[in-house]
Simulated assay, not measured.
Amino acid sequence: MDPNAHLNNLALESLHEDARAVLTRQAFPDTHDPAGRKQRLVTSQNVVHFLAEAYWPATIDTCVGVGRIGRTSFVVSSALFHAGNCISLCDAVMVAVGEDGPVSVPAVARRTLENLRLRVRGVGS
């Protein structure tokens, strides 16, 4: 926190990062295990918007889902809420990487990501 007891940008970003790790582990179960993984996930872009202040101590609710799925990458979108108000949004582009660079997202991971895709209520479902 800062001297005014605000949760600072690093504290909020760590909540986005934790949500991202939980989501990616569902689609790529061994991605965080260097010994057992066949490919890695790297972050190629991370955009965070800080929308409102929150003071420490605080209970923060986190929502996360998949915003877009490409051939070798996907976007993890997360939102942080305090007292029902959105205080921060984050979009992170994750790229599947093998020994020689970007690789296609495996079919099994793609299916899991599709199940985690964000949807607008009442549209397309």
Score class of each variant (00 low, 15 high):
M1N: 11
D2L: 03
D2Q: 07
P3M: 00
P3I: 00
P3N: 04
P3F: 00
L7P: 02
N9P: 03
N9Q: 10
L12F: 06
S14L: 06
S14Y: 02
S14P: 05
L15W: 04
L15T: 05
L15P: 14
H16L: 04
H16F: 09
E17H: 08
D18A: 14
A19K: 01
R20L: 14
R20S: 15
A21M: 15
V22A: 14
V22T: 13
L23K: 13
R25W: 08
Q26W: 12
Q26E: 15
A27W: 10
F28D: 05
D30F: 09
T31S: 14
H32Y: 14
H32R: 06
H32V: 03
H32W: 06
P34T: 02
A35F: 08
G36C: 13
K38I: 06
R40E: 07
R40A: 13
L41T: 03
L41Y: 02
L41M: 02
V42L: 14
T43G: 03
S44W: 03
H49T: 08
E53Y: 03
E53Q: 15
E53N: 04
A54W: 06
Y55T: 14
Y55P: 07
P57V: 00
P57G: 00
T59H: 04
I60P: 01
D61P: 01
T62C: 08
T62V: 15
V66T: 10
R68S: 05
R68Y: 06
G70Y: 06
R71S: 07
T72P: 04
T72L: 02
T72A: 07
F74G: 07
V75W: 09
S77A: 12
A79E: 06
G84N: 00
C86S: 08
C86P: 06
L89E: 14
C90M: 11
C90P: 09
D91W: 08
A92L: 03
A92P: 01
V95M: 07
A96K: 11
E99M: 09
D100H: 13
P102Y: 01
S104G: 12
S104K: 11
V105H: 03
P106Q: 05
A107P: 07
V108S: 14
V108M: 08
A109E: 04
R110K: 11
R110H: 12
T112V: 13
T112I: 11
L113D: 01
E114F: 01
E114D: 13
N115F: 02
L118T: 11
L118H: 10
L118N: 05
V120H: 09
V120N: 05
R121M: 06
V123Y: 09
V123M: 09
G124Q: 12
G124K: 11
G124T: 12
S125T: 13
S125H: 14
